[in-house]
Simulated assay, not measured.
Amino acid sequence: MDYQYPIDYTWSTDEIVDAIHFFECIEKAYENGIDRDVLLHAYRRFKEIVPGKAQEKSLFNEFEEVSGYASYQAVKSIKEISSGKKIKISQQKRKH
């Protein structure tokens, strides 16, 4: 990883740690796959930190810009895959 995660410096330390954990889960969904329930739990916590759609979209866009990973695709997969299954996003990471 040669980039910084998008965070809001008004968040508490715990919120920053949990938001970074969510983005790490997105990376895992693209790189190796991740258990759907782990990603769901991380996303629910992320939504507690970032309840607004506009800020969520902004952070997702920032993350995709620096990493090449589309958070929306991974979150969308949560609804499409049953509990207990693995999410693996096959879209290739863009090179920056």
Rank of each mutant, 00 (worst) to 15 (best):
F60G: 03
E65C: 15
H41R: 05
I78L: 06
F22H: 02
F23A: 02
V50W: 01
L59V: 05
D35M: 11
Q91G: 12
D14K: 08
I7E: 08
Q55H: 09
I89V: 11
I34R: 02
S12F: 02
P51V: 02
R36H: 04
W11C: 02
Y5F: 08
V50T: 04
S90Q: 15
H41I: 10
N32A: 13
G84A: 04
K76A: 15
S77W: 00
N61V: 08
V66A: 08
Q4P: 09
Q92Y: 15
E27Y: 00
H96M: 13
L59Y: 08
A19W: 00
G33T: 03
V38S: 06
V38I: 11
P6L: 10
E56K: 09
K76Y: 09
V17C: 13
I78E: 01
G52T: 10
N61Q: 13
D8H: 06
N61M: 13
F60C: 01
H96V: 08
K79L: 14
D8S: 05
I16Y: 03
E65R: 11
S77C: 11
S67W: 00
S12V: 07
Y69Q: 10
E64G: 10
S77I: 01
P51T: 05
D2A: 07
L40A: 14
F60V: 01
I87Q: 00
S83R: 12
G68V: 09
N32D: 15
H41Q: 14
T10N: 11
I20K: 12
Y69P: 05
I89H: 04
E80G: 08
K85F: 04
I87F: 00
Q55L: 11
A29K: 03
F23L: 05
F46N: 07
I26S: 01
G68M: 06
H96Y: 13
K57G: 14
E64D: 06
F46W: 01
G52D: 15
K28S: 06
W11F: 08
I87T: 06
A19K: 08
I7W: 00
A19F: 03
D14C: 10
D35W: 06
A70F: 03
K76S: 15
A74I: 00
G33Y: 01
